[in-house]
Design a protein around this nucleic acid. Structure first.
Lengths: 338, 338
DNA sequence: ATGAAAGCGCTAACAG
DNA sequence: CTGTTAGCGCTTTCAT
């Protein structure tokens, strides 16, 4: 007999069989009562429910999943849950999933190609659905994942994936908005922080920014690769000050990078926005509390998470259909950093 | 008799049986090769591994769990994953768990008593372990959870739970540090934001703060209940300005509350720290980017998450023993808001 | 309206 | 070292 470490008492968890015995019916009848499936006499049903209550019975999800092939679990695969943006997405998704008795699993990729694929591959066998912010996976790999997992929702990757939902945050527009804003304020020497984990010039927000700048006749935008985090922003801020003193306006990839960048720039003795205008992206809740309050591209992260979850659930045949449309709009929130 | 589903349409996921057939051995032998358990001839092992590779076999976690009674999943139950503090904890925990092939589930409680208990009860049947920031559960309920779930790690609740791990972040000391700091700077009229979801005067950080203030002869500390979020901080900031103009120093419960509070206070025309000194708690990564940079109680959230995960795993008999000791130290980081 | 039988895919215990 | 025998707890046919 095995002793389970950490387990206090010895009582075995009641099974459907125990309930059946107690109620004087068969397992199937209990199952019917629990799942409200198939015809069942109200009186029998009441007796079963009473037995369930008395015994404190809870269906074993594993056993259920074994036969239904569902785990009632959806995973969120994102760069780094420490980024409040993903925290907000996770919150929105978890809330929506919870309303339909599903749970949320989180997995960080660090936007690393290998980790991203490993996460998808591993999860695809263990969860009902995956909601993923993807940056590196090859289409062939994604197709394999889409075939394996019952429900796949891809954000930020405009790939053709039949059977999956491909949702887009309109960051091309976001990037354009930032460029227009900076140029309208008279800035001619621009820089943009690009995600160091991605190919140069790639990424929706960056390409939108570059396109709008080019249209305005500004072709020589400085591109600064950085990790999409506060430390990444610090490094790139120092570099900007040292190597590109002519730049007066920068699009900082996201709010975290903006925070680090602003700190570094000030430490070097320059002022924001006077010497350098800084614009972020995401509009995390705290962006308005900074010094200075951050100009940034607003994304309704919780809404994105909730809608992504709705799509995941719809693909699983649970809940109401998700709203139609596959692009989330963004807007520029002008505060004091630019 | 087996029903074959592979012939016509989509390819069926290979099972251990398929691998066994392909390698010309029994299921048990495949199992041994996969789990590196029991003696197995190296040559046989190689053949099995080859078959696994060719078929792209991955063990079904549900079926495994069915017999091992393990899901390889640990849950983090916390107030609100939108709070970057919990994001950092989640990241630390997920990283540690991932290193041992376990996954992290997240569930928010909003620090609501009912949700907290519901989360614990539901999860206790579905995961191997629970790491929980708890605020409301009765001891009897916790004992029931501890009995059900194989591994329970409780943070922030000093309750006797044999078989579980009860870890403490030394927020009593944190609260004392804040009081000493404020008093040393000459503040005599103090306020403290208390968690509106908890009983007044309760909570480690608050009681530490009040105790140290009392020892210094300050008994009439203003207590302001608020939700532990930025909106909560805004409300309480407005209230502070309107109803308690004599207060010159406030301990804001956590960094989010501090952010909201500072915003509200400024909007009312007062200066921080000149008119009001504000101290937060948690030291989330962004606290140093604010206006002004926030004085706060530093908690190494990622470390807390990682160590909590180590305890959870140790209770499950996985990985190395967690470090001894059950209290996480804190320190006061003095910046410019006080 | 209810029950009986047949597994889902895997591992533990015991043979050989 | 390897195979055989039993289930884990549940739902899905198919009877009755």
């Amino acid at each position: 007999m095995r002793v389970l470490s950490g387990q206090l008492g010895g009582r075995r968890r009641p099974t459907i069989e125990d309930v059946a015995a107690r109620a004087g019916v068969s397992r199937q009848t209990v199952s019917r009562a629990v799942n409200a499936k198939g015809e069942i006499h109200p009186e029998t049903r009441a007796r079963v429910l009473a037995a369930i209550e008395e015994l404190g019975y809870r269906p074993n999800r594993l056993a259920q999943g074994m036969v239904t092939r569902r785990t009632r679990t959806v995973a969120l695969v994102a760069g780094d849950i420490r980024n409040p943006f993903f925290g907000e997405v996770a919150h929105g998704a978890a809330t929506e999933l919870g309303a339909h008795d599903h749970k949320l699993l989180v997995m960080d990729t660090y936007e690393d190609a290998e980790r991203e694929l490993a996460a998808l591959t591993e999860l695809s066998h263990d969860v009902d659905g995956i909601i993923a912010f993807l940056y590196h996976s090859e289409l062939a790999d994604l197709e394999a994942v889409a075939t394996t997992v019952p429900s796949l929702v891809v954000l930020n990757r405009d790939v053709p994936l039949p059977g999956a939902r491909v949702l887009t945050i309109d960051l091309v527009a976001g990037g354009r908005l930032v460029a227009h804003h900076l140029i309208a304020r008279g800035h001619r020497h621009l820089a943009v922080v690009v995600n160091a984990t991605q190919a140069p010039g790639t990424g929706r927000r960056v390409s939108g920014f570059l396109a709008a700048a080019a249209e305005a006749g500004i072709e020589d935008v400085v591109q600064l690769p950085a990790l999409p985090s506060m430390p990444g922003g610090r490094e790139v801020g120092a570099e900007l000050v040292g190597a590109h003193p002519e730049v007066t306006g920068v699009f900082a990839y996201n709010d975290l990078v903006a925070a680090g960048l602003i700190g570094a720039v000030r430490r070097a003795g320059l002022g924001v926005p006077d010497d350098l205008a800084v614009v972020g992206c995401d509009d995390i809740a705290l962006a308005s509390a900074w010094d200075p309050p951050l100009t940034t591209v607003r994304i309704d992260a919780e809404h994105v998470g909730a809608v992504a979850a709705q799509h995941a659930l719809e693909l699983l045949g649970v809940g109401q259909p998700a709203p139609s449309g596959d692009v989330f709009g963004v807007e520029l929130v002008v505060r004091a950093s630019s």
